[in-house]
């Protein structure tokens, strides 16, 4: 069964309060010099063959529901 990964990240110009909280917690723990932005990863198992049409469909699903393109970018890739 094919697995497709959709990564969703806040756009670079959009403040990421969660990433900032993680960044400052890391610093408190002594992990200096790391700047974190936090996103979401979706793992999608595809029934049957992964055709270009099916992959295109996942792109449209990401654009419709998984990401809000006002504030987020997304990336679709097939897991090898």
């Amino acid at each position: 069964m094919a697995k497709v990964i959709v990564d969703v990240m806040p756009k670079p110009e959009i403040l990421d309060p969660q990433g900032k909280a993680v960044t400052s917690a890391l610093k408190r723990l002594g992990f200096d010099g790391f700047s974190v932005r936090q996103g979401k990863r979706f793992e999608i198992d595809v029934d049957g063959e992964l055709t270009p049409e099916r992959l295109d469909q996942i792109g449209r699903a990401a654009d419709t529901l998984l990401a809000n393109t006002v504030i987020e970018n997304f990336d679709v890739r097939v897991e090898q």
Binding site: I14, P17, Q18, A21, N68, V70, I71
Partner: peptide, 17 residues
């Protein structure tokens, strides 16, 4: 309403967390 595109923009987490 923002998610439905009846209004523009989006609401994200408060900056003060």
């Amino acid at each position: 309403l923002c998610e439905a595109h009846l209004l523009p923009g989006a609401l994200i987490r408060n900056d003060r967390r």
